[in-house]
Structures are given as C-alpha cells and as structure tokens.
Design a protein around this nucleic acid. Structure first.
Lengths: 144, 144
DNA sequence: TTTCGTGCAAAGCATTTGCAAGTAG
DNA sequence: CTACTTGCAAATGCTTTGCACGAAA
C-alpha cells in the first residue's frame, strides 16, 4: 500500500505544541496530525468522524475546544468560507482558496498576492488576511 | 487610507427589481431600500428588527427568502465573514472588507485589487471574489 | 387557474455553555 | 493543591422547511 505523507514542517507535532506553551495531550496531537495529513480543509464533523474511529471516546466539544486553542496559538487557520460551517487548515500562512458552489469543496490556490495586500488597510491592525473565490471548480465544470 | 465609496445607482429600486425580471413587492422594495441606505453590512436580524417597526407583520422567513432572491439576481452581495451569521451588502461589486474582532463591525475598504485577482484561478469558473481582513479596527485600537 | 410571494410554526443543525470527573505540573 | 483538559448533556441561535393563505399573471 502506498501512503502519502505530507511533510510540512520539520518540527514534530509535539514540538509545535510545546513551542506555543501548550500542554501536549493525545487529543491535541491527533487533531493536529489529522489536519496536517488531510489538506482538504475539513469541518469539525469531518475531524470528529475520522478520529472517533481510533478514539471512540473523543467528543465534539474537545474538537471545538482544541481547534480554538490551536487557532489562537497560530498553529492552524480557520476558514469562514462555506456559510454553514467553519473549516480548518493546518497551514497557518495566508493563501487564497476556491469554494465550489457545486461540490462544496474548498480548494487551495497558489499563494500569490496575500502577503502584499496588507498595505491597503493601514489604520486598522490586521491579524488575518482572507482571500477566496466562489464559483464552479474545474472538476464540476467538466462532468454534469 | 480608507475611503468609503458608496456607489448608488441612478436606477430606482423598483427598476432594479424589474430589470432582473423579479416581481415588485413591498417587502422586496423595503429590504432593498434598507440595504441601500444602511451601508453597514447588516445581518438578517438587523434588517428584521428595523423593518418590523413599519411593517409589523413581516417575517424573518421573508427576509431570508428575499435576500436569497436578491443575491441570486445579483442585486446584493452576501458576506460570509463573521462566523455566526451572514451579512448583506447592497453593493454587488466586489470590494475588500475589514472585520473587527472586537466590535464585530464589518467595514468597507477601498476597492483596489479585487478586479485584478481573478487571473490566478484559471481552470475554475469564478462567480464571486471575496477579500477581507480580520483584526482590530482603528476605533477599537484607540480606546480600550 | 396556475404560479409566485408571504409568513407562521416547527424542525435542523453547527456551535456554545455548564458542569463534573480526570490529569498534569 | 491548583490549574488545565476532557467530554457528556443541555441550551443557544441562525437558518431552513413544510405548509396554508393570499396575490399576481
């Protein structure tokens, strides 16, 4: 079997938590790991459904709590794109997304402009930059 | 520098509806008018609360239905920025916003880049462009 | 008469909160 | 011991749905 492993940072997941002064729990590690290995901007429910298989006792509240902690620590980014639910991304660096109105997927786009846009908001303190498009993705455009 | 530019069309509200082939009802006119005159990206509840004063029988369902119709017709734009609720804008042209994490207001930023960004999403069909920032606004930055 | 618009009541569902039990420091 | 973490159950609140009545074409 071929397993695709995405190596983003040289830092271990545990080190990422410790560096931010966060306690390392199995739940936090698993959630961070899941996000790191599933770069499809999963929802809370996606994460919950997947982790429940190996950790049947995990609760949705913990997913919410943990994602909140990770987001505040700057370890994950939080996407308010699909109107129904929040989605998460292990890549905390700002980059553009594409939301398909047909299949509801959130795709990553090549990072091009995000870092350069900030200059237009002087006067306000910018903590996050969000750029995304809505429309029909390549895949859905093809087949009906 | 932040410049707020309100582009109000010469077209009457009724004409806007008719041009899109929509029936003209008092509810649709009032909702469109409210958005046109209150450029603060109100939520459904804001609109409901305001219109209920002069139209006590109006229902939230109608606000939802109408905004959906107006959005699909391209008469208003729909902002998925604040994670809790959707906000609406009578200006359907894409322009950047700033969401203040402290006072929860959504501010308009000067339109600068939005029209030029589209080139980066080749392959996907773009229907909407969304660019916004999150942080602390000028006003909140000042006084605690 | 047939289709569309309105609005009430109820349902749906993502997210939050309160709290009790467990765990790390 | 004290502060943090987990997770269950219940509550919250935005949004949608089903449906009946009324209005427009």
């Amino acid at each position: 079997m071929i397993k695709v492993v995405i190596i983003t940072s040289m830092e271990s997941l545990q080190q990422r938590l410790e560096r931010k002064g966060l306690r390392v729990s199995i739940q936090r590690l698993k959630i961070l790991q899941y996000l790191d290995q599933h770069r499809v901007h999963p929802t809370v429910d996606d994460i919950y459904g997947a982790l429940k298989k190996e950790m049947p006792s995990i609760s949705k509240t913990t997913i919410y709590n943990t994602l909140d902690v990770l987001h505040k620590a700057g370890l994950v980014s939080c996407l308010t794109i699909s109107p129904k639910e929040v989605r998460f991304d292990a890549e905390p660096k700002a980059h553009p997304h594409f939301f398909c109105l047909k299949c509801n997927r959130v795709l990553d786009l090549e990072e091009v402009i995000c870092p350069h846009i900030k200059s237009h908001v002087d006067g306000n303190i910018v903590e996050e930059v969000h750029l995304y498009f809505k429309g029909i993705c390549k895949k859905c455009k093809g087949g009906e």
